[in-house]
Every structure is written in C-alpha cells, then in structure tokens.
C-alpha cells in the first residue's frame, strides 16, 4: 500500500465480548506513519470494536482480543491497559461526542492533557487547540453539556489533541452534524494530519466523505475485512457505489431495505 513505515499494524485479530460474542473474526489492517486510513462498514460491522481493540477500551466492556496481535511502531500493545496505550500516543475519540458535560470546555481540554502533566505543555496544548478550533476559545468557559453538537465534536477532538497523540482513532466524527459543520471538521482533521503529522484511523458511515479524506480504506462486514483498496478504486467499485454511495447502475436510488436485500447476494459477502 504505502512505502512509509507502518505506525499501526493489526494482524488477524479476533475479538470476543463476554467470552461468547464473536465480534471480529480475523481483521488485519495497517495505518502508515502520517497517513489517513478509512474504516467503513454498516451498523454492527465491528468498526468501533476494532478501534476499542486498539485503544484498549475493549477490556472495560468485557471484551478481549483472543487471537492475533496489534502492534504500534513495532511494539505489541494488545495486552496493554488503556492507560498505557494512551501513554504511547494512541488516542481514541469515541463515537457520540462524549464530552464531560459538567466540565467547561477548557476543563475538558485539560483532562485531555492528563498524561502530559501541567505547566508549559498544557499552555502549548491549549494554544494549539484554540488555533485549530478558534470557536472553542470563545466558548472556553461554557459547560460542555450546553454546547452545540458541532462544538461538542470539536471539544472531543481538541481534547484528544491535548493528549499529544501520534495516532488518532476517530469514530464517526460526522454523525448527526449539519453538512457545513462536517466540512469544517473534516478540513481540520486533514490539517491535523498534515500539519501535526498525526496518523489517523477514521471510522465513517459517510462513505463519500471518508473516501474524500482518506487515500486508503478498509471495508468491514460482519466482523471481517471484505475489501481494502485505495480510495479512488473503492469509489469506482460497483458494490461500494451501490451500497454506500447510493449510485446504482440501474439509475434510481434504492431504499435502504432494498439495498440490504440486494447486498446479501453480493460476492464479497462471505
């Protein structure tokens, strides 16, 4: 895929919840250093589970990586605690804009710097966040629970930035936001990647957006990777066009139900 050294490498992992529910059945994936990689798939495909397996949050939902391995810069991390993994510079932005709602915006950001200590780091971190999200600077003393959805999404991304990550795992940052805001937030994500050199693993259901942002993407289906290709190839792929982009060869847009039935017959659905 890319000649650059890989930052993150997932080798054929299997994930179980509660020791009985098999959520991932052999997922392999690679994020090159400084790259953006998309992770696509329908509801329940296992996208969030993949991110939680990387960040170690899985262990707190009674989940476990039972097979395979996860490596970050050549170091095995699948047995490490969430705290250690965050310390290595892997930060997950969990889905659903989970701000600390009773804390102010700035307090949220300060919690983001928890592992990085106070002092000069904190000041520089805050400056960087306010540089990328000037709107947060105006709202720094507002309780995060009262922010608009877009501002909350900015707060959680800014908060992750405070942890000075080498790689950010973003879970559906576009969910439930207006198109204008989505555009703004994705521009910032791209800038964070380019200007700060942060590698990004981007989970999205908005496939068009994801393929416009990530040069390479994986498609998950029922806990398996069913496709991984450069974005331009995926955009041309008839299955992706049908199912995710809603542009069928037959012309008319299909309802989700119809697409779902249709999808079952597709060859990449093992």
């Amino acid at each position: 895929m890319d000649e650059r050294r890989s930052a993150l490498q997932i080798n054929n992992i299997e994930v179980m919840y509660h020791e009985v529910i098999l959520a991932l059945k052999g997922v392999s994936l690679e994020v090159p250093q400084g790259g953006i990689v998309g992770l696509l798939g329908a509801n329940g495909a296992g996208k969030s589970t993949t991110l939680k397996a990387i960040s170690g949050l899985l262990k707190h939902e009674d989940g476990e990586v039972t097979e395979g391995s996860i490596e970050f810069l050549g170091q095995r991390i699948d047995k490490k605690s969430a705290e250690e993994i965050a310390g290595l510079g892997i930060v997950q932005v969990i889905e659903g804009r989970r701000v600390f709602e009773h804390l102010t915006v700035e307090e949220n950001l300060r919690v983001g710097a928890h592992l990085r200590g106070n002092g000069a780091h904190l000041r520089r971190g805050l400056d960087a966040v306010y540089h990328y999200f000037p709107r947060l600077k105006d709202r720094r003393d507002v309780q995060a629970g009262y922010l608009s959805g877009g501002e909350q999404q900015m707060t959680v991304i800014g908060r992750a930035l405070m942890a000075r990550p080498q790689i950010m795992l973003l879970d559906e940052p576009s969910m439930g936001l207006a198109p204008m805001l989505i555009k703004e937030i994705f521009e910032i994500i791209t800038r964070l990647n380019r200007e700060e050199g942060i590698s990004i693993l981007l989970v999205e259901q908005n496939v068009k957006l994801a393929l416009a942002t990530a040069p390479y993407a994986y498609v998950l289906e029922n806990g398996r990777v069913v496709m991984d290709e450069p974005a331009e190839k995926l955009r041309e792929n008839p299955d992706i066009r049908d199912f995710y982009l809603g542009l069928t060869d037959l012309g008319a847009r299909k309802s989700f139900r119809a697409v779902k039935h249709y999808k079952r017959r597709k060859r990449w659905l093992t």
């Binding site: 600390f100 709602e101 009773h102 928890h114 592992l115 959680v156 992750a160």
Partner: peptide, 13 residues
C-alpha cells in the same frame, strides 16, 4: 464521574 469511558480513552486510570 461524568463519563468513565471517555476519561479512560485519555489515559485516566
């Protein structure tokens, strides 16, 4: 207290 999972994701033990 607000959101344990989110705090964990930032490395708070």
């Amino acid at each position: 207290a607000d959101d344990e999972m989110a705090a964990l994701s930032l490395g708070v033990s």
